[in-house]
């Protein structure tokens, strides 16, 4: 009898366990991927979006955070617009994509019908900041000196960046200049998309270079250029980087974050969103991802879904105001 009872209880336990398993699998409150997840990099191989997507997929698999396979697919074109249309068309929790400020700027410039509101922000992982650099022998030693001269004689100072007006390199500079009181409609901005922007600064064709912090480090070390200001809230850490003054500490109240995070399709199922939010949190906290961040010199900037949505809404408002003032908004 005793034996029977114990066997019986094991059976009951098993049965209950099986049932509860069943109910979680078929219920609405949790979600698990059942096939390969596709992460879209809205650009060709080799760039920031592609690297982030591939590295995330790699760490997800290596550290067994997600059991399913993850594939990275490149969808270049239209500064991201082609990929956004693709994700919108798929509308499946198995298609995610990686993005950054162009997701706000490209639609604001009227180059894509989809805005971030047409997607579900899952979580942000990393941040990069802008740097404003001049030639090492330039007369300016800080942002205020530069902006004073720009107010007096805007025609004599040209700014170069690697993207067209209305996109990141332009807007990050305009954002800081405006906070310093420069008339932003008088800024002379030149775009060089064939990789010649730094060359133009080095040979004196232009006076100012608007770029990412990482691109300036080696040139600063070699004494070719100097960085007048960066757009982070506080000073960065690391050799050379810690010497870069922020715009804020120079009394210019402006910051610009080149955020990078992951998105899903519009109106993602709450269960699927919870699942991914959890997994990206695990990714962000993993050792492997910390190694990736260090390798590429990316700063950590984690935001969960809710924080991300608030942040993006705020950012969009700011960008739109700038573009409207420039007459670039659509």
């Amino acid at each position: 009898m005793k034996k029977f009872l114990s066997v019986m209880s094991v059976f009951i336990l098993l049965f209950v366990a099986a049932c509860s398993n069943d109910s979680t699998a078929s219920g609405d409150d949790t979600w698990e991927p059942e096939k390969t997840i596709e992460i879209v990099a809205p650009a060709g191989p080799g760039g920031g979006w592609d690297t982030t997507a591939r590295m995330a997929a790699k760490i997800f698999e290596e550290e067994e955070i997600i059991d399913q396979g993850l594939g990275v697919v490149n969808k270049p074109g239209g500064g991201g617009a082609v990929a956004w249309a693709y994700i919108h068309g798929k509308d499946s929790p198995y298609n995610l994509f990686v993005n950054s400020p162009p997701l706000l700027l490209v639609p604001l410039n009227g180059q894509s019908e989809y805005t971030f509101n047409d997607f579900t922000p899952i979580s942000n992982l990393i941040a990069d900041y802008a740097a404003i650099a001049v030639s090492a022998d330039a007369e300016w030693d800080n942002l205020n000196e530069l902006f004073e001269d720009m107010k007096k004689d805007p025609e004599s100072i040209a700014v170069v960046g690697a993207s067209s007006p209305g996109s990141m390199d332009h807007i990050q500079f305009v954002h800081v200049a405006k906070a310093a009181g420069v008339d932003i409609t008088k800024i002379k901005y030149v775009s060089d998309q064939d990789g010649g922007a730094l060359t133009q600064l080095l040979n004196g064709s232009v006076e100012v270079f608007s770029t990412g912090v990482a691109e300036t480090v080696e040139q600063v070390r070699a004494g070719n250029i100097k960085v007048l200001g960066i757009t982070s809230e506080e000073r960065l850490t690391g050799e050379v980087l810690e010497d870069f003054p922020t715009a804020i500490e120079q009394g210019i109240d402006a910051s610009f974050i080149n955020w990078r995070g992951f998105f899903g399709p519009a109106d993602m199922d709450q269960a699927a969103l919870d699942y991914y939010e959890q997994k990206f949190k695990e990714l962000n906290d993993s050792e492997g991802w910390a190694g990736v961040r260090e390798q590429y010199g990316w700063s950590e900037m984690y935001m969960d879904h809710e924080e991300y949505v608030d942040f993006l809404t705020e950012q969009e408002k700011e960008m739109k105001a700038l573009l409207d003032e420039l007459g670039l908004g659509n």
């Binding site: 270049p76 074109g77 239209g78 500064g79 617009a81 082609v82 249309a85 410039n109 009227g110 180059q111 894509s112 067209s164 007006p165 209305g166 996109s167 030149v190 775009s191 060089d192 998309q193 670039l328």
Partner: peptide, 20 residues
């Protein structure tokens, strides 16, 4: 495609594939 110096889209006829 998108003009580098002004950001104007030229002759894409609303097709995102032609932006670049």
């Amino acid at each position: 495609g998108i003009d580098g110096q002004t950001g104007t889209t030229r002759y894409t006829f609303g097709n995102a594939n032609l932006l670049e």
